[in-house]
Structures are given as structure tokens and as C-alpha cells.
Simulated scan of single mutants.
Amino acid sequence: MAKTSDYVQLYMTPEGPKIIESATKTKILSLLEEKDLYFDEILAKTGKSKPTLSNHLKVLEDRGLIGSKSDPYDKRKKLFYIKARQYVELSTDIKLNIDLKNYFKNCFTQLDNPVDFYALSLRSIRFFLSNNGIDIDPLLVNIGNFMGEAMYEQVQSPKTERLVENMAIFLNKFEAGHIQLISKNPLTIRIDDNFECKDMVNTGIPNCAIAKGSFESIFSIHFQSEVSVEEIKCVAKGDKYCSFVIKKLDKKINLPVKGSIEFI
């Protein structure tokens, strides 16, 4: 199969994993990950002709990657929304070009507990894959989702302040980081010594995918509404600590995984 772009993405759908090789389809999915859009809005953002865009949307909808619903005030208009979740991206633009050998040498002289060793092991996997054009951050976010759902049972509280305090106690217990609530509006959380990026080299991009996924689940359950989580500061970007802004959303995604891989 000929590739139509220099990268591919793996999405999970209720029918199974789908590998997207079309640049236009990945653009559409990326837009819908941000928010639901009408046909004309997608048309303006992609710059495609109406027949071409209609074909792409039909393929994505037929494969279970997106859905659509009629506008309650104008039945002629369709609102499109995403049903899938990205897991992996392969791209020549992802490469970090980190010297792993020297990185390990420097880190091994500073390791002083098992948590740091396992955190280094996790980072080494990410760096190796990134050096070869493979981004697994979406997968790690999903792993964080499962961790956060389980963690919520240990830290839950009807009060947001108490919830964050319980999260701090939980992470301190495992020496995985130090959490504090910075603001309630917008909800902003700071993490110092986060195990994901402690002693991290400066890559220029956020690194705390597992924390992001965990926060998504914890605060979605807490607020009884899906949330977005944005990492606005990260040690991997050269900041002194990591911080996240959490906002409520109205979107819901439910992904039982089954089936075989399909190329689209």
C-alpha cells in the first residue's frame, strides 16, 4: 500500500485498531480530537473540496473512527465527533536524536533508589522509540487512564482540595512525586520530582504522559464529566517543575478493544 504522508498513526476503535496513512484523514481526526465540528468547519480547516472531504468523512465514519449527528435546529447540518483514540504515531519528524549511551552514564551516577531506576528504564524505552520516529505518548496517556481510574478508589473525596491532598499522600508513599494544588480556577496542579521526568534531559516537549492520563481519569470521575488535561510546564521543556491545567468537557469516549488491525 502506498503511503500518502511521511507519518502514520494508530487509533483504537470499538471494532479494533486502525492504522491511518492518509494525511487528510489524520488532519480530520486531529481537528475532531480538539472539539466536535460541522462539515463546513472541517472544510475550511482542511482546504479540501466538498466531494473529497465527504469521501474521507464517510470512510472514517464507516470504519468507526468518527460519528455524526444532526443539528437539532437544522437537520441538513451534521456535527462530526471522534469515537477513536490515538495510541501511536510514527513519523520522521519525531526523532529526538538523544545520545542514549552518554545519557545512561550520567544517570547511573545519580541513581540512589529503585524508583529512579525504573523511571530511567521507562524513559530509555521512550527515548529509543523516539530516536527511531515512534511516539508512544498517546499509548502512555491511555495507560495513565487505567492507572488513574484505579488510583481514584484510593484517593477519592467529594472536595477537590482534599482529593489533591490524598493524591499527594499517595504519590509520596511511592516516591513518585510531590503534588500541590496551585489554583482552583482554572484547576492547576504542580508536580515536583515527578518520576516520569525527574533528571530529564531538555527535549523541548512535555513528557508526563502517564500523569496526564491519570489526571484525566481521576478528575473525570471526580467531576462526573470528562476533562481535558494540558501540561503547561515540564522539566523536559527546561522548567523547574511540571504543572497541569484541568478543564471540564462534555465529550464521552468508550472504547472496548477487539478485532484486527486495518489500514485506512
Rank of each mutant, 00 (worst) to 15 (best):
F170D: 04
E175T: 14
I189Y: 02
E165S: 10
N172Y: 13
S121A: 07
L139T: 10
F174M: 14
L96I: 10
L96R: 14
G144E: 03
L171S: 04
R162C: 07
F128M: 06
F146P: 00
A119E: 04
D193F: 11
V115H: 00
V201N: 15
Y152E: 04
G177F: 03
N106Q: 08
K101G: 07
V115Y: 00
E196W: 01
A176W: 07
I182A: 09
R190E: 11
I134L: 07
Y152V: 01
K173C: 08
Q110N: 11
T188C: 04
L181H: 05
E161N: 11
A119Q: 01
N113G: 00
H178V: 10
D116W: 11
T109K: 13
R123T: 06
G144Q: 04
D99H: 08
E165R: 11
L129Y: 04
I136D: 00
I182H: 06
V155Q: 02
E153H: 12
S91Q: 10
L187Q: 01
T109P: 00
E89T: 09
F104P: 00
N194G: 15
I143E: 02
L140D: 04
D192H: 08
N172T: 09
D112M: 06
N131Y: 09
H178F: 10
L111D: 09
G177C: 05
G177D: 04
S157T: 02
T109I: 08
E165P: 01
E175V: 12
D137L: 02
N202T: 13
P114V: 06
L122W: 07
M200H: 15
H178S: 12
V141S: 03
D192V: 08
S183F: 08
D116I: 10
F128N: 09
M200G: 07
R190V: 06
N202K: 14
L111F: 05
Q156C: 14
S121Q: 03
E153L: 12
S91P: 10
S157D: 08
P206K: 02
L163D: 01
T92M: 15
I125G: 02
V201Y: 14
N194S: 15
M151R: 08
P114W: 02
N131S: 07
V141D: 01
I143S: 03
C197Y: 06
E196T: 04
L100W: 08
D193S: 13
Q156A: 15
D112N: 13
N131F: 06
L122V: 11
D112L: 05
L181A: 05
T203N: 08
G133V: 05
I205K: 10
F104D: 04
E196G: 04
Y118I: 08
K198E: 09
A150Y: 06
I182M: 12
I94A: 05
I191K: 02
I98T: 09
P114C: 04
Q154H: 12
I94N: 06
H178N: 14
V141K: 06
V201P: 14
E89A: 04
E175Y: 14
L187D: 01
S124W: 05
K184N: 12
Q110R: 13
N145A: 00
I182D: 09
I136M: 00
N194F: 13
I191Y: 03
I98V: 15
I179T: 10
L129P: 03
N131T: 07
R123N: 10
N106E: 12
N106G: 04
V115M: 08
R162W: 06
V164Q: 03
N102I: 13
R190S: 09
E89K: 12
K159T: 05
